Each structure stands twice: as structure tokens, then as C-alpha cells.
Amino acid sequence: MEQGTVKWFNAEKGFGFIERENGDDVFVHFSAIQGDGFKSLDEGQAVTFDVEEGQRGPQAANVQKA
């Protein structure tokens, strides 16, 4: 798993971006967030995640709040 920081996340649209430790950004969809209840992330929040190849390039999977 990688570690990163939430760059931004739009809860209304259900997606955002995580900044990886290497400085690259990776797309995150709310469906990739682990846990119960409303799935959202806060700007600046530390997270761990896997990276999978999506239809439009790399995207975060198995996102967990650190």
C-alpha cells in the first residue's frame, strides 16, 4: 500500500485526487473508500491506498484513512 495526502475531494460529485509520496496525483472515486457510512475525504487528510489501472489511467483503490 502507498501513503498519500488528499489534495482535494468533492463530496457532491464523489471524486477527487490524492497526492502520492512521489508527488504525482492519483484519481480517487468515493466507491474506493473503505468503511461504513458516508464516504468522503477531507483536504490534507492522510490516507493509505493501492493503485490500479482504470479506464482513464491510474486510480486509487482500497482507500483507508490513516
Rank of each mutant, 00 (worst) to 15 (best):
59 Q>E: 09
61 A>T: 12
61 A>G: 08
41 L>S: 03
17 F>P: 00
24 D>S: 14
56 R>I: 07
35 G>I: 09
56 R>Q: 10
59 Q>P: 01
8 W>E: 02
54 G>Y: 06
38 F>Q: 08
20 R>L: 06
50 D>H: 13
63 V>N: 00
16 G>C: 02
5 T>A: 07
56 R>D: 08
53 E>S: 11
52 E>A: 10
66 A>N: 11
61 A>L: 12
6 V>M: 04
47 V>S: 00
16 G>R: 00
36 D>H: 13
50 D>R: 10
35 G>K: 06
4 G>Y: 01
6 V>H: 01
3 Q>E: 10
51 V>P: 03
51 V>G: 02
59 Q>F: 14
28 V>D: 00
29 H>T: 04
7 K>Y: 04
22 N>K: 12
31 S>L: 07
30 F>C: 05
22 N>Q: 11
63 V>Y: 00
23 G>A: 11
27 F>V: 02
45 Q>F: 05
18 I>K: 00
13 K>Q: 08
33 I>D: 01
52 E>L: 12
7 K>G: 03
42 D>Y: 14
45 Q>W: 10
28 V>E: 00
41 L>D: 02
40 S>G: 08
32 A>W: 04
6 V>S: 02
60 A>K: 00
58 P>F: 11
59 Q>R: 11
9 F>R: 02
59 Q>M: 10
59 Q>W: 10
32 A>R: 06
65 K>T: 10
45 Q>M: 12
3 Q>D: 07
36 D>V: 12
22 N>E: 11
50 D>E: 13
7 K>P: 00
22 N>M: 11
62 N>S: 06
31 S>Y: 05
65 K>S: 09
62 N>K: 08
41 L>A: 03
57 G>S: 06
14 G>N: 03
49 F>D: 00
42 D>Q: 14
1 M>W: 09
35 G>R: 04
35 G>P: 05
19 E>H: 15
24 D>N: 14
5 T>N: 09
45 Q>K: 05
64 Q>I: 11
18 I>L: 09
25 D>V: 12
15 F>W: 15
54 G>H: 08
30 F>I: 06
5 T>W: 15
51 V>N: 03
27 F>C: 03
21 E>T: 14
57 G>R: 06
43 E>F: 13
13 K>N: 05
32 A>N: 08
58 P>L: 12
8 W>R: 04
45 Q>H: 07
34 Q>Y: 09
18 I>P: 00
25 D>N: 10
32 A>F: 05
62 N>D: 04
66 A>D: 09
8 W>Q: 03
31 S>D: 04
56 R>K: 11
43 E>W: 12
18 I>E: 00
50 D>I: 14
22 N>A: 11
23 G>E: 09
46 A>P: 11
64 Q>N: 12
37 G>Y: 07
18 I>C: 02
11 A>P: 11
23 G>D: 10
39 K>W: 07
64 Q>W: 12
56 R>C: 09
53 E>M: 15
53 E>Q: 15
42 D>L: 14
30 F>E: 04
29 H>K: 03
18 I>V: 04
9 F>V: 04
25 D>S: 10
53 E>V: 14
10 N>V: 05
18 I>W: 01
42 D>R: 15
47 V>E: 00
45 Q>I: 09
21 E>R: 14
60 A>H: 00
17 F>Y: 07
1 M>I: 12
37 G>S: 07
11 A>K: 15
17 F>T: 03
60 A>P: 01
6 V>G: 01
19 E>Q: 15
5 T>R: 15
59 Q>V: 10
42 D>F: 14
25 D>K: 09
63 V>Q: 00
21 E>H: 14
62 N>Y: 06
21 E>D: 13
43 E>T: 14
28 V>C: 06
1 M>V: 13
27 F>D: 00
6 V>L: 05
15 F>L: 05
16 G>Y: 01
11 A>L: 10
13 K>R: 13
40 S>H: 12
42 D>C: 11
37 G>R: 05
31 S>V: 04
37 G>C: 08
53 E>Y: 13
35 G>E: 10
33 I>T: 02
